[in-house]
């Protein structure tokens, strides 16, 4: 049976834009993901439902050759649309070949030259708070799965959602909420930065960053990889809704032992558990303490053992791995 694509729209704002995947490509890849899941001997997923839930991601795509900042553009687009008496399509993706004023969390600079995959997904927030907390994990997982799918099986996730390859950062994400001023509708903006064909990094990031092009020793097709990443994002957002619906029906989550399926899949792609880390709310400028990672709790929190043997679970902040592991913490 050939499934019909839902309403899809591609707005190429700038004909010079290089990264111009189409919603159809994303939809087709999403269908492929569904078929693969369905072919598993025992899949706990209602694949039709997961696909239906996630298909909104990438249903509208705006491609720009350059933008100051994709997140700012998303906020502007939401405001402009709502002031015109309409509502922005949930799942709209904004892409830019380069960004001139991009930034990371806090006041960190973010370098977004040509060759990378830079952009933002607009998600009208219809998830319950207990599902919303998995959005950051879903975003990193989607990228890690896409990277593995092109053959880089050694890509790993570092809590919360950094994608690393042999210890160097391939991609970073920024998840922010935004409430539009007319009706108070809340959106989640998922900013993504994936080092694809860009190979030059600022001196301070040179040792800790890497791109797909550098690893593969060849350029990748930006549109193809972006479509693959967005299709994984669609699938994983679909899983968030799928798991939420199952839980609300009183059936529990689909993972082993009743674990949230997204968390189970995140854990399968991560090497964080067992690592010795330095933790900080803003770990780059204000590292707080060293600890061993004991596990990830049911809400995605990081269970840590500090010096003295005391355990603490963190639900925000970030970590850096300490390599090589030292002697056991006193």
């Amino acid at each position: 049976m050939v499934e019909k694509a839902p309403f899809l729209s591609c707005k190429c704002i700038d004909n010079m834009a290089e990264n111009r995947p189409t919603p159809e490509e994303i939809f087709n890849l999403l269908q492929r993901a569904k078929s693969r899941e369905r072919s598993l001997f025992v899949s706990p997923v209602d694949t039709e439902a997961a696909m239906r839930y996630g298909a909104f991601v990438g249903s509208v795509i705006e491609s720009h050759s350059t933008l100051p900042r994709a997140m700012d553009h998303a906020r502007h687009l939401i405001n402009k649309t709502v002031q015109a008496g309409s509502s922005v399509a949930s799942g709209t993706v904004i892409l830019a070949d380069t960004m001139t004023r991009s930034k990371g969390r806090f006041a960190r600079a973010w370098h977004a030259p040509a060759g990378g995959i830079w952009g933002c997904l607009i998600h009208a927030n219809t998830l319950l708070p207990q599902s919303r907390r998995f959005i950051s994990l879903a975003t990193g997982l989607s990228c890690c799965e896409a990277v593995r799918e092109i053959g880089l099986e050694k890509a790993l996730l570092r809590w919360v959602n950094d994608v690393l390859f042999e210890g160097r950062k391939l991609a970073g994400f920024l998840v922010e909420s935004f409430t539009e001023p007319v009706h108070g509708e809340e959106f989640t903006l998922v900013g993504f930065g994936i080092n694809a064909n860009n190979g030059l990094f600022p001196a301070e990031l040179n040792a800790s960053s890497i791109s797909l092009g550098q690893i593969l020793a060849r350029e990748i097709d930006l549109c193809t990889f972006t479509a693959l990443f967005l299709s994984r994002l669609a699938w994983n957002f679909g899983l968030l809704y799928h798991e939420e619906a199952k839980e609300l029906r009183g059936e529990g989550f689909s993972g082993r032992g009743g674990q949230h399926l997204l968390l189970e899949r995140w854990l399968a792609c991560s090497d964080t558990v067992g690592k010795r880390v330095v933790y900080g709310f803003d770990v780059m400028t204000a590292p707080q303490y060293r600890a061993d990672v004991l596990g990830i709790d049911a809400d995605g929190g990081l269970i840590l053992r500090l010096a003295g043997g005391h355990e603490k679970t963190e639900y925000s902040g970030e970590i850096r791995y300490l390599e090589p592991p030292l002697l056991p913490l006193p």
């Binding site: 969390r105 994400f173 998840v175 922010e176 970030e318």
Partner: peptide, 11 residues
């Protein structure tokens, strides 16, 4: 407000 690396502005 920061929760699971999801930042929400508080007005």
């Amino acid at each position: 407000m920061s929760l699971m690396k999801r930042d929400t502005p508080v007005y």
